[in-house]
Design a protein around this nucleic acid. Structure first.
Ligand code: FES
Ligand code: FES
Lengths: 153, 153
DNA sequence: GGAAAGGGGACCGATCAAGTCCTATTTCCT
DNA sequence: AGGAAATAGGACTTGATCGGTCCCCTTTCC
């Protein structure tokens, strides 16, 4: 739950791959093959990311994609935002008031934004660079990847 | 994006309403009418929340629901978790390894959990009590409900 | 014993994401 | 100059899943 779409999922994976060699150009086909993802979908996602300004595209033979900025300056929030619009968990308050049909009755109206903000900040705090330096870092610090022993079911 | 289901949406609204009078019993019908939500759906959601241990249910005439704990001790993460399973943004790593088809190729494998953890923590940090004291608090502190001026689009 | 509440689950319809495909455009190489 | 290889852009189909409804059973109060 709190599911993101597969587009974002793939998008982050792809961006992470590109972040490994920021200088280098990668074609959509090569990335798809390497990551074992459906080629047309990869192509589509890369296009969107390029349109969003996160990727630099080079057309023609020997073309391909590369990051338009350094991995450190790209947050996963940006990636998700580029792929699926602004980050908002609920449709209530996306931007303007008057949207939700039950504003008058709703007690939480304003506080939804607290949730949205919390999630957005959490996502903005994670940079692409952090996504590429994988296990060592985690293990070194001794951070537990998961801690949710109590699953009531 | 990063959408939660309407169940969670409604669930949080309902829980917030109940948090206003933690002692009192509320029937599903009354809550539905008050909040202008479809009655059967409300009933369904309350059932799930009760099964999850977040609500105390009383059957029979004069029955109804009430919070099983204080609003301060209930986080929105719990509500969402009860309504839609454990909080995980992606299906890759829900719990055990071996799930994702491309573990060998995936560079982010371990770092997805970083994202999941960040979101989970963000949601755990928000209590039901915070959801009920609505606008005043926000305004007093001068917190901006939204800040996202740069929308590249 | 009846009415009013919750408990549980089956069920259907609409929405939307995921993936495919096609065509145009740009660029490199021969 | 011309062809090949790549991106740009969009239309389309299908499939899952969410949202919502409905029905029947159990419990409790009066
Ligand atoms: S304003 Fe939409 S549910 Fe609160
Ligand atoms: S392990 Fe599933 S995408 Fe990384």
């Amino acid at each position: 739950m709190i599911r993101i779409t597969k587009q974002s999922d793939y998008g982050i994976v792809l961006m992470s791959r590109l972040a490994a060699e920021p200088e280098q150009l990668h074609t959509a086909a090569a990335l798809a093959a390497e990551l074992q993802l459906p080629a047309p979908t990869v192509s589509k996602i890369l296009k969107i990311l390029a349109r969003g300004g996160l990727l630099e595209s080079h057309r023609g033979v020997k073309g391909g994609y590369s990051l338009s900025r350094t991995p450190e300056s790209i947050s996963v929030a940006e990636i998700i935002g580029a792929l699926e619009g602004p980050i908002a968990v609920t449709e209530c308050i996306e931007d303007g008031p008057g949207e939700c049909s039950q504003e008058p009755f709703c007690a939480v109206r304003g506080n939804w934004q607290r949730i949205n903000l919390a999630i957005r900040q959490a996502l903005e705090a994670i940079s692409l660079a952090e996504m590429t330096e994988p296990l060592e870092q985690l293990v070194t610090i001794g951070r537990r990847p998961l801690e949710q022993p109590a699953e009531p079911s």
